[in-house]
Design a protein around this nucleic acid. Structure first.
Lengths: 339, 339
DNA sequence: CCCGACAGAACAAACGATTGCGCAAACAGC
DNA sequence: GCTGTTTGCGCAATCGTTTGTTCTGTCGGG
């Protein structure tokens, strides 16, 4: 016999399976003689009994498994979010099923994936780019889910406070005397990209600086995108900005390359800062000043929220915005020229 | 009723559940009238029936789920391996359960995790650093598993061909005229680290060069480790090497920093190359020449092997060594001085 | 006209747990 | 000594499938 079942334990302890079950589940309100309980525990121990999660799941309609859908696995932000979710899930006795959903997933595929859904108790969806329909389908199916890394109206969401993060970065640059601060934005279609752009505007205005639309260039989320955007920006404007604030670490790294090729010193001529801290920030030259964003905590908070919904039996639509982790000052930012 | 069950379908089609099951599982050898089959399919379609994976798993003792244990999630190599495993798993109808197991996991923890094991059909273990006992426990429990990213004697293993990869790198450097080629090694305790060191020696010898033990420095797997090791090496040797071959991308990036600070030009004075290609290689200055290593393919091959074991019912102990993806020549390597 | 053979579908027993309910023994109150 | 309550535990149904076995016709052959 490969693995001991409950009835094996019950047989060895000479009790009914129901009694064995009650004892082994460790419920308090049960009336079982102390001697019987000990006998059952001893039998379970001797046989190395472990409850079969599949059978339990069938009976209780709870798999104690969380599904997590992410658009890309190689992105450090999602990797960190997975790590955070896994940490919380493990601590709360849940397993984590991960699913790679390309960004632009055909609807039918998405629904096919839903088929797998009754094997999870809830879904952590980092991938609902514009997928309101999928969200609705989930809600209709009564599957608890939380939108991760973006705010989905009407759904429980856990995301980063991009506005606050941009404000930290802008305030830092302004405190160094910068007033012409360009923004290498993310994708215009992305939730985070849009909010970072909005945050750039808001933070500048809060500092009494008029945001100049000419200083915005969309760079996407790659180094080459950052390099190209930086080049386009330099080619376009009369007076180059004294500082560049990139929406992501890798686009900032790309921008650094372009600036170097253009013969501009960083931070002598142009300061560069980015959102999202990470190991890469210390590998580039000069090392990048960043605003740390709590990606791991985002995954963890998402898992917490999801488990709360599952165990509470309540679907919540609360939105959690995680504040930035703070400025990580390195070598790429310095006083504005002529100050 | 939240979700339709098989008996709902059977009732609607006015047949027995067993008949419905046979039709919906789509087995060929079954004798069912065409008209009945159509009626059942129509009913299933109308109700949006999807088989409950949990019930099916209980009955068939197959969860169609793969477990994957990794030591770190933020490491790009493991992220890629996960992506590869997920791709194959999804294509073959399996789900991927990921589990983060710290490197030095206490045995009792490991066994606790085993408890979750009857919810997976097999285990992809990237984390059996020195865990022969765990491997044995798995084997004894009859759980199919494959060791990933290292070769575990007696177990089915999928790993990288470090020897071949180092040879590609060494040959490249030698072809540029280098003969004093230092090695920034990984951890001496790590399987990959050890083999890369061995590969360095073997490749040099194959080129008729005596490997000089003085030119080896252990750098671990971090940028700061790489920087420190490079510094130590420079401080130690009389004549600096003309080339440095790092066991990992990030340690090479760290070494670059040290070389820059020491006033040595790359590749003018010293060429630098590393194993493992990745986005980081293009972000550093100068961009790094690397040997691409198939991390995603490793995850994929591991999943393939595991599924083959599961579906074949045979435990294999075959070892697959994946050949390097090839040299990615960038700016950090050049002709040896004085050639 | 009877007897297999066979197709088509129903019956029923699992898989391994959880849980409402019922039953016996022990015990108290009167 | 009889009833009523409590305590401790067993009985049996159930979760949603899969699958071996059995049953009922129908049909062809002798």
């Amino acid at each position: 016999m490969a693995v001991a079942t409950l009835s094996d334990v019950a047989a060895r302890a000479a009790v009914d399976v129901s009694t064995a079950s009650r004892v082994l589940r460790g419920e308090e309100g049960q009336r079982v003689r102390e001697e019987t309980r000990a006998r059952i525990l001893a039998a379970a121990d001797a046989l190395g009994y472990r409850a079969n999660p599949v059978a339990r799941a069938l009976r209780t309609a709870r798999t104690h498994t969380l599904g997590m859908a992410v658009p890309q696995l190689d992105n450090p932000v999602f990797a960190a979010a997975i790590a955070g979710a896994e940490r919380v899930a493990a601590a709360r006795g849940y397993a984590l099923l991960i699913s790679h959903l390309e960004d632009a997933l055909p609807a039918k595929d998405a629904y096919a994936r839903l088929a797998q859904l009754n094997r999870v108790d809830g879904l952590l969806a980092a991938t609902l780019e514009e997928d309101a329909p999928l969200a609705e389908a989930l809600a209709r199916a009564g599957v608890p889910f939380v939108a991760l890394n973006r705010v989905l109206p009407g759904a429980c969401s856990v995301a980063l406070d991009n506005i606050a993060a941009m404000r930290v970065a802008v305030d830092h640059l302004v405190s160094l005397g910068h007033r012409r601060i360009a923004h290498l934005a993310g994708r215009a279609s992305g939730w985070n990209g849009r909010l970072r752009l909005a945050g750039w505007r808001a933070a500048l205005r809060a500092q009494g600086i008029r945001p100049d639309p000419e200083l915005v260039e969309h760079a996407g989320y790659t180094a080459s995108g950052g390099a190209a955007a930086m080049a386009a920006l330099l080619a376009r404007v009369r007076t180059p900005p004294t500082a560049v604030l990139a929406a992501t670490l890798v686009s900032a790294a790309g921008a650094l390359r372009t600036l170097r090729q253009a013969g501009l010193a960083v931070p002598g001529d142009v300061s560069v800062a980015a959102l999202h801290d990470g190991p890469v920030a210390e590998l580039v030259e000069p090392q990048l000043t960043t605003v740390a964003l709590p990606a791991e905590a985002m995954g963890a908070a998402g898992a917490e929220a999801l488990i709360a919904m599952i165990e509470g039996g309540q679907v919540s639509d609360a939105t959690t915005l995680l504040p930035p982790g703070g400025l990580v000052r390195r070598a790429s930012t310095g006083a504005a020229r002529g100050r």
